[in-house]
Deep mutational scan, measured.
Amino acid sequence: DVEEQIRRLEEVLKKNQPVTWNGTTYTDPNEIKKVIEELRK
């Protein structure tokens, strides 16, 4: 469920934690926001 994935990513973003997505770890909040934007398409 895309909405659920977006919610999880936004939670991690608020906590300033790194996100691992498709084998890539993102630590930059701007990169995480880009992943969220991609999911919304």
Results as ranks from 00 to 15, higher is better:
15 K>Q: 13
26 Y>Q: 00
10 E>G: 04
14 K>M: 13
28 D>M: 04
5 Q>G: 04
21 W>P: 02
15 K>E: 08
14 K>R: 14
39 L>A: 02
12 V>Q: 15
34 K>S: 07
23 G>Y: 02
9 L>P: 00
33 K>N: 06
18 P>K: 10
6 I>A: 04
1 D>P: 11
18 P>I: 11
7 R>M: 08
27 T>P: 02
24 T>C: 05
34 K>M: 11
6 I>M: 04
23 G>T: 01
33 K>I: 12
10 E>M: 14
30 N>Q: 11
30 N>W: 12
38 E>Y: 14
13 L>Q: 03
1 D>K: 10
27 T>Q: 06
30 N>P: 02
20 T>Y: 15
24 T>A: 09
15 K>F: 12
27 T>A: 06
39 L>V: 03
24 T>W: 06
5 Q>M: 15
20 T>L: 13
4 E>Q: 11
26 Y>P: 00
41 K>T: 10
21 W>V: 12
1 D>W: 15
40 R>E: 03
9 L>S: 00
17 Q>T: 08
7 R>P: 01
1 D>F: 12
18 P>E: 08
12 V>E: 11
27 T>N: 10
28 D>F: 03
8 R>K: 13
6 I>W: 05
11 E>Q: 09
25 T>G: 02
15 K>I: 07
14 K>Q: 12
37 E>W: 06
31 E>P: 01
40 R>K: 09
25 T>P: 02
38 E>F: 15
37 E>I: 08
22 N>W: 11
38 E>T: 12
26 Y>M: 09
11 E>M: 13
28 D>E: 10
4 E>S: 10
17 Q>A: 09
21 W>N: 02
27 T>W: 10
24 T>L: 10
38 E>W: 15
4 E>L: 10
11 E>A: 11
9 L>M: 09
35 V>E: 02
5 Q>W: 15
36 I>D: 00
12 V>R: 14
30 N>H: 12
8 R>F: 15
24 T>D: 05
20 T>R: 08
10 E>T: 08
11 E>P: 01
22 N>F: 13
26 Y>V: 03
38 E>M: 14
27 T>I: 05
12 V>C: 15
21 W>A: 03
41 K>Y: 09
21 W>Y: 12
20 T>E: 15
22 N>I: 02
11 E>L: 11
29 P>A: 08
18 P>H: 08
29 P>N: 04
39 L>Q: 01
6 I>V: 06
39 L>G: 00
2 V>P: 06
32 I>W: 03
20 T>Q: 13
18 P>T: 12
41 K>H: 10
34 K>Y: 07
11 E>D: 11
30 N>F: 12
34 K>E: 05
2 V>I: 14
37 E>Q: 11
6 I>K: 01
37 E>A: 14
24 T>M: 10
25 T>D: 04
23 G>I: 00
8 R>D: 06
37 E>L: 11
29 P>M: 14
4 E>A: 10
22 N>H: 09
15 K>H: 13
7 R>Y: 05
9 L>A: 01
19 V>W: 15
14 K>H: 11
17 Q>R: 06
25 T>N: 04
4 E>F: 11
23 G>P: 02
41 K>F: 09
36 I>F: 04
4 E>K: 06
23 G>K: 01
28 D>W: 02
1 D>A: 09
6 I>T: 02
32 I>G: 01
6 I>H: 01
18 P>S: 13
28 D>S: 07
38 E>K: 08
12 V>T: 09
21 W>G: 02
39 L>E: 01
17 Q>E: 15
10 E>P: 00
19 V>L: 14
40 R>Y: 08
33 K>M: 14
1 D>I: 08
24 T>N: 10
41 K>W: 10
38 E>H: 11
33 K>Y: 12
9 L>G: 01
16 N>M: 09
40 R>I: 06
8 R>L: 14
29 P>G: 05
24 T>Y: 10
31 E>D: 14
18 P>Y: 07
37 E>V: 06
33 K>E: 08
4 E>D: 12
29 P>I: 08
4 E>C: 13
2 V>L: 12
3 E>L: 14
20 T>P: 02
31 E>K: 05
36 I>H: 00
16 N>P: 05
7 R>S: 07
27 T>V: 07
35 V>R: 03
9 L>E: 01
34 K>Q: 10
36 I>V: 04
22 N>Q: 11
35 V>Q: 03
31 E>L: 08
32 I>D: 00
21 W>S: 02
1 D>R: 11
12 V>W: 12
26 Y>T: 02
8 R>M: 15
37 E>R: 07
17 Q>I: 12
4 E>V: 09
33 K>S: 07
6 I>Q: 01
3 E>A: 13
25 T>W: 09
18 P>F: 07
13 L>Y: 06
16 N>L: 07
41 K>P: 02
38 E>D: 08
37 E>M: 11
23 G>L: 02
17 Q>Y: 15
15 K>P: 02
10 E>R: 05
1 D>Q: 08
16 N>H: 11
39 L>R: 01
4 E>I: 11
8 R>H: 13
33 K>L: 13
15 K>M: 14
14 K>S: 14
25 T>F: 12
22 N>M: 13
39 L>H: 01
26 Y>S: 01
36 I>Y: 02
14 K>F: 13
15 K>N: 14
38 E>N: 10
31 E>F: 05
16 N>R: 13
16 N>V: 04
37 E>C: 10
10 E>L: 14
28 D>P: 00
7 R>G: 04
25 T>Y: 11
11 E>Y: 05
7 R>D: 04
13 L>A: 07
15 K>S: 14
29 P>C: 05
36 I>E: 00
35 V>F: 08
30 N>R: 13
21 W>C: 05
40 R>S: 04
7 R>E: 05
14 K>V: 11
32 I>P: 00
